[in-house]
Simulated scan of single mutants.
Amino acid sequence: MRAPRFVALGDSLTEGVGDPVGDGWRGWAALLADGLRAGDVDFTNLAVSGAQTRDVLERQLPAGLALQPDVVSVVVGVNDTLRCTFDVHAVAARLDTIYAAFRAQGAVLLTACLPDPGTMLGLPGALARPLARRQRAVNAVVHALSERYGAVHLHAAEGSWTTERAMWSSDRLHPSERGHRQLAVRFHELLAARGIATGGAPSVEPELPVPTKSASLWWLATAGTGWVARRCTDLLPQLVTLAVDEMRHRARGTSGRLDLRAAHAVSMALVALSVQERPAEAA
């Protein structure tokens, strides 16, 4: 009997950025893998920093399917919100295809909703709110599709962990070692409740010191600015337009219209998917 096979797909969060080990990253998925079963677990991390849903669909999905995992995690979407090409309809269609493909193979699917990057970076309200609205839209899609495909879904977008300084690395966007351990422990709890994780839970205590506030400020003053610029180069002009629109609506007291518009886009994206027959649904 072969060892359980766990494959992780996604972006820098799943790659492990913020949890350094040696010359590379470890992260929540590797920590979780150790607790899936006492003994050997065949773990492969296909996640790549900067990946969007398109990258997962076109590059990581074929490699993941070829490995025929027993457990697969798909945590992605934040990078989509940082692009001027953001389209919740496209995000929903890609995630639907990815989830369905793994469920058709019989894999246990792990998903998560995530905090919005604008709030985590501490951007001004007019800039942060459009990004938050986009992340809420992605989370709503992930929630709905996770339910459709019977995924083990982690609600990680809210809660005390999002504001607890020790949970986040110096860049304020990626979890620290403690934050990665928190994600691993919470996923382990969900899997153990279903009888899927039978190994010991990951430790919540970090091996390295918590990043200091001065380290965070230094990162923001040096590498942080460049990181944001690289991620948001094509978004910035559109984000300025969105911010102006945000301020105009707030001045008129009509900000609710922007929320309704976003909610309608999510509804239409899910309605478009609901008319399609999926193997996993028919099973």
Rank of each mutant, 00 (worst) to 15 (best):
S255Q: 13
G195R: 04
M120S: 08
F6D: 00
L183K: 03
A38F: 09
G10D: 07
P62C: 14
R83S: 08
H153A: 08
G200N: 10
H188Y: 03
T163Y: 03
V71N: 05
R129T: 11
R181L: 09
T222P: 01
D259Y: 03
V41T: 13
D55T: 11
T97D: 05
A132Q: 15
T198F: 01
L220C: 09
S214F: 11
I98L: 15
D171H: 06
E177C: 01
T85E: 13
Q60K: 06
L235D: 00
D116P: 04
A93N: 01
E147I: 13
S216T: 14
D259V: 04
G27L: 06
L31H: 15
W161I: 04
R26F: 06
V108G: 03
T85F: 00
L154Y: 03
Q52N: 14
Q52I: 14
A92E: 00
V240F: 15
S169A: 07
A221T: 09
H155K: 09
D234E: 14
L123P: 14
A243E: 10
E189L: 13
T14Y: 02
A197V: 11
A265T: 12
H153F: 06
M120N: 02
R194P: 02
R231F: 03
R136S: 00
P279K: 01
D234L: 00
E58A: 14
P20E: 05
H188S: 05
Q135I: 10
S169V: 00
V204A: 15
D171Y: 07
R252F: 05
E205Y: 04
R178C: 02
A3R: 06
R194I: 00
V71C: 07
G200E: 12
L95E: 01
E246Q: 14
V271G: 04
A33I: 02
W219P: 03
G106A: 11
Q182F: 15
S160P: 12
V48A: 08
D34S: 13
R148W: 04
Q135M: 15
G39W: 13
F6T: 02
V88H: 01
E189F: 08
V17F: 08
R278Y: 11
F6W: 01
E15C: 08
S73F: 07
D11S: 15
S12A: 04
W227N: 12
R250W: 07
L190D: 04
A282K: 09
R54G: 08
L220H: 14
F43I: 05
W25A: 11
R278C: 05
V41G: 05
V138N: 00
H143Y: 06
Q68M: 07
A30V: 11
N45S: 03
A201F: 01
R178G: 00
S255Y: 07
A66F: 07
G64I: 10
S170D: 11
V17E: 08
A51I: 00
P206M: 10
T85P: 01
I98R: 13
